[in-house]
Design a protein around this nucleic acid. Structure first.
Lengths: 128, 128
DNA sequence: ATAGATGCAAAGGGTTTGCACTTGA
DNA sequence: TCAAGTGCAAACCCTTTGCATCTAT
C-alpha cells in the first residue's frame, strides 16, 4: 500500500493551502509553512506538493508567464484573475467565458484555460 | 541614438520567426538559426529576443505552464491552441471567446488570455 | 522495526550576465 | 573609428535528487 504518512510538515502545508483564499506559489507555501516549522526545507515543500497533486488533494493552476500556483483540488470548472500590479491570482466563480468559433480543420478541442488580467480590489483602490 | 545594428545573427533570427507559421520557443529559434550560423551562441538568441521585444518587432506568447513562445508582433487580438500531444502552439484567428459574468467587487479587467487545448491536425490523425 | 518523510547540499535545466573580441555603420 | 553586438563561461534562480537521519505506524 502507499501508506501516506501524516507528518507535521505535510499537515502544515495542507493547512496553509486551506487557509489561503487564493492559489499560492511554492514560495508562498514555503514561507507560510515555515512560520510554523522554522526548520522546514524547501525540498520538503516541493515533494509534498507533488505528493498532494498525485493524491488528488491539490490542483495546479497554470497561469500564463509564470510557474504554477496551487489550490485545493475538487472545485468545479472555473478560471482565474491575475492582478497586473501585485501579481496575485484569484479564483473566479464559474466559467465566465464562452468559446465559440471554429478551429482549423483537423483540430480537436478538449478544454481551455482563461485568465483575466486587471487590477484586484486592493490595487485598483491604490491607483485611483 | 540607439543605433540598432543589422547583424547577421539578428537578421537570421528575424527570418526564422517570419518563416515559422506558429509561435516558437527560444530553443526552436536557437536550433533553427544555428543551421545558418553554426557558431551562434544561445546568449545571442536571448539578447536578440529581448531587443526585438523592446523594439516591438516581436511579441511574447504566454501559454499556461511553459516558458514564453515568440511570434511576430502587430497581429490583431487572437488566442492560441496548444496541442496536448506534440506541445506545439498554433495561432487561432480572432478572439474566439466571449468573456461575460462579473468580477468580484473592486476588480477591474484590462484584458484576457485564452488557450484552447486539444489535438492539432497532425496529432489527431495519429490517434484516430 | 522499518519504509516513508525530512533536511541539507549538490546537481540540473533554463536564462542572464561579465568580459574580451568582433563587426557594422 | 568605436560602440553595439557576439561567443564563451560563469553566475543565477528555481526545481529536483542523493543520501544520511528521523519518525509515524
Amino acid at each position: 500500500m502507499s501508506a501516506e504518512r501524516n507528518t507535521r510538515q505535510r499537515r502544515t502545508i495542507r493547512d496553509v493551502v486551506e487557509r489561503a483564499g487564493r492559489p499560492l506559489t511554492t514560495d508562498e507555501i514555503f514561507v507560510s509553512a515555515q512560520t510554523s516549522i522554522p526548520s522546514l526545507g524547501k525540498a520538503t515543500v516541493y515533494r509534498s506538493i507533488r505528493a498532494l497533486l498525485d493524491e488528488g488533494w491539490l490542483a495546479a493552476v497554470d497561469v500564463p508567464g509564470r510557474s504554477a500556483l496551487y489550490e485545493r483540488a475538487g472545485k468545479e470548472h472555473h478560471h482565474h484573475f491575475q492582478c497586473s500590479h501585485c501579481k496575485r491570482v484569484y479564483e473566479l466563480d464559474g466559467c465566465a467565458s464562452e468559446i465559440r468559433g471554429e478551429l482549423p480543420a483537423g483540430f480537436v478541442s478538449t478544454g481551455h484555460d482563461v485568465t483575466i488580467y486587471g487590477a484586484c480590489a486592493g490595487c485598483s483602490r491604490l491607483t485611483r
